[in-house]
Simulated scan of single mutants.
Amino acid sequence: MLIKKRILTLAILTFIQFPNLYAQIPTLNPFFFGDSSKESKVTPSNLTSIGKYYSDTNWNAGNLFLNNGDSLVAYYMRYDLVRNHVEIIIDTKIKAINGSFIDSLEWFSIGRLRPEKYLNKKITSLRNEADISGFTEILCDGKIKLYKCKMVFAPRQATSPTLVNDTDSEVQVLEKYYYEKSGELFEIANSKKRNLNFLDTKGLDGFIKQENLKFSNERDLIEIAEFVNSK
């Protein structure tokens, strides 16, 4: 019993002294920039297995911004929706960085040929949305912000899913879109009237009719947000 107590005490002291195991990683990916003296303090972990559900299954080169002020530039990465961590290739090895250490990330999507940016839910007005975890893509920024959120869930737990992409017999990926105005968050609804009332922009209804835009189409949602931001 005495030995067990000593082991437990040693484990507690070790945890107190080393709450996080940091590593110094080159800020600039040596593959693109060569050797650099600048390093970032990162808390990576080894992967026990590869995930299945990602915001994008491709490995995209991008930048990761940590909440300690450091960053990793031009690394290949992808975001695991279920585990809420970023898989990142560091020195030919795949590591994971938990979402709690990250403020935002951005990459150039090789599949969609466009830059994409993701924000930690905690630094957006989405922080109180219980069914959204981790990161959300920001599709449009300005007076009106447009967020795209992906959630993985079991079908038996779902309630009135709207836009569903990847599916199999066990889980589904649900997409939700939100507008934000003056700190107020609004989940885009099927009701055109409700959406127009929230956006409250002169000439918007006529613009939507003229361009034949729909609140159920992502590209149209971006055009609508850009129109509002231009006013």
Rank of each mutant, 00 (worst) to 15 (best):
L2M: 11
I7G: 04
L8A: 15
Q17P: 00
Q17R: 12
P19H: 01
N20F: 09
N20S: 00
Y22E: 14
Y22A: 10
A23W: 14
P26A: 06
T27F: 05
T27P: 00
T27Q: 01
L28E: 14
F31L: 15
F32K: 05
F33L: 01
D35T: 10
S37Y: 09
K38D: 15
K38F: 12
E39W: 03
K41Q: 13
K41S: 14
V42Q: 02
T43G: 08
P44R: 01
P44V: 05
S45L: 10
L47Y: 09
L47I: 11
S55N: 10
T57Y: 12
T57R: 14
N58V: 07
W59Y: 08
W59N: 03
N63H: 09
F65R: 08
F65N: 03
D70A: 09
L72C: 08
V73Y: 13
V73I: 13
A74K: 10
Y76G: 08
Y79L: 06
Y79G: 10
D80H: 01
L81I: 06
H85N: 00
V86H: 04
I88G: 07
I97D: 09
N98I: 11
D103L: 03
F108A: 12
I110H: 04
G111D: 12
G111F: 06
R112Q: 13
L113Y: 14
L113K: 15
R114M: 09
P115M: 00
L119Q: 00
N120M: 06
I123F: 08
T124D: 12
S125E: 13
S125R: 01
R127S: 10
N128Q: 12
E129A: 06
S133N: 15
F135C: 00
T136P: 05
I138A: 07
C140H: 02
K145D: 04
L146Y: 04
Y147H: 00
A154I: 11
P155V: 05
A158D: 06
T159E: 14
T159H: 10
S160V: 12
T162N: 12
T162F: 02
T162Y: 03
L163T: 09
V164I: 15
Q172P: 08
V173P: 00
L174T: 06
L174F: 07
Y177I: 06
Y179D: 02
K181G: 05
E184H: 12
A189F: 02
S191N: 05
K192Y: 09
R194F: 02
L196T: 08
L196I: 08
L196R: 03
N197W: 04
F198M: 09
T201H: 10
G206C: 04
F207R: 01
F207K: 09
K209W: 04
Q210L: 12
N212R: 05
D220C: 08
L221A: 10
L221T: 00
I222D: 05
S230W: 03
K231D: 00
